[in-house]
């Protein structure tokens, strides 16, 4: 893996709130969904940061907000040292060429009426790149080859491809404009087990060849462990723990990280027998009315009186690790 040298993305206190309104003529705000509520992290060039958590934790919203596909309520998004949160219009479009997205659904994210050639070359046209039509065709063929498809597949339509191949097309489209950062939102979770590995390996190979940085959003902690250098765990709109891969999996500190890791079975019946697994209780509460204090306290097996009233801050610890838990005050 390439040595991370500098910071490509720095997110500071990012908040994305969605107003909940009532009334048809006179709309009144009656509440707010705090989908992302104060998230900060950095991503180094050539690095993969895994962003994990259960549905509703705000991981996808974070990804979309960084691409400015959702309005940012508060906070700074420094991409290559420039704050992109207030950008508009042409400035924003130019910036988007540098960061691209790969989506979860390989069926819904490709236009069924467009050929693969058109799908992959569309971003080139949008950004005025790729020169003549012939040059664009040549570029598309090279991209298809890069993602492990045949050069001559460009004239086909998405329905002629399997799920894994469609995800490769989505990756080719993202790479067409030569981005520095790729935000991958659950890119393998819709794929079959034997195909997942092909696509995970492709992401790793492309990173080595092109020096890409990935923000890899996923709920599967085993996949995230495979691909990430560092991992941030989210719960109800906040990061509860962030650490290097080895530190996080060897010694998870936050009780939620521990619960998540415990919930994932290891494919070995002998190990599973020895683990004697006990599931944690409850489900993720609504982001409209998050619990007071630590948001995880109603489900936490170690909850103390303090946890019910005081929100624990994300405290920096040794070797770049940070935890938001009163059990680990630093």
């Amino acid at each position: 893996m390439s040595e991370p040298t500098d910071t490509i993305l720095q997110v500071e206190n990012l908040k994305v709130h969605f107003p909940v309104t009532q009334g048809i003529v006179i709309k009144k705000e009656v509440g707010r969904v705090r989908a992302v509520d104060g998230v900060s992290f950095t991503l180094k060039r050539g690095e993969t940061l895994g962003l994990v958590g259960e549905s509703g934790c705000g991981k996808s919203t974070t990804g979309l907000a960084i691409l400015r596909m959702l309005p940012v309520t508060e906070g700074r998004i420094l991409f290559e040292d420039e704050d992109i949160a207030p950008m508009e219009g042409r400035q924003l479009r130019a910036m988007r060429r540098r960061m691209q997205m790969v989506y979860q659904d390989p069926y819904g994210s490709l236009n069924p009426r467009m050929t693969v050639d058109d799908i992959v070359s569309e971003p080139l046209e949008v950004h005025g790149l790729g020169g003549t039509k012939a040059e664009r065709r040549e570029k598309v063929s090279a991209l298809l080859e890069l993602v492990g498809l045949r050069r001559d597949m460009g004239s086909r339509y998405p329905h002629e491809f399997s799920g894994g191949q469609r995800q490769r097309i989505g990756i080719a489209r993202a790479l067409a404009v030569e981005p520095a950062l790729v935000i991958c939102d659950e890119p393998v979770s819709a794929l079959d087990v034997s195909i997942q590995a092909q696509v995970v390996n492709l992401f790793e190979e492309l990173q080595e060849r092109l020096g890409l940085s990935y923000l890899f959003i996923a709920h599967d902690l085993a996949v995230v462990r495979q691909i990430s250098d560092r991992i941030a765990v989210m719960y109800l709109g906040r990061i509860v723990e962030i650490a290097t891969r080895d530190a996080l999996y060897r010694e998870p500190l936050h009780p939620y990280t521990q619960a998540l890791l415990g919930a994932i079975p290891i494919p070995d019946p002998e190990i599973e027998k020895a683990r004697d697994f006990q599931p944690i209780v409850g489900e993720v509460p609504s982001a409209m009315r998050p619990p007071e204090g630590c948001r995880f306290h109603p489900r936490c097996p170690h909850a103390m009186a303090k946890c019910k009233v005081e929100l624990p801050p994300l405290v920096e610890m040794a070797d770049g690790r940070a935890v938001a838990c009163h059990l680990h005050p630093g």
Partner: peptide, 14 residues
């Protein structure tokens, strides 16, 4: 399949 207890830094074998 990637495993929580697998070797890190090893490519998956699809």
């Amino acid at each position: 399949i990637p495993r929580l207890d697998g070797d890190v830094g090893r490519r998956l074998v699809p």
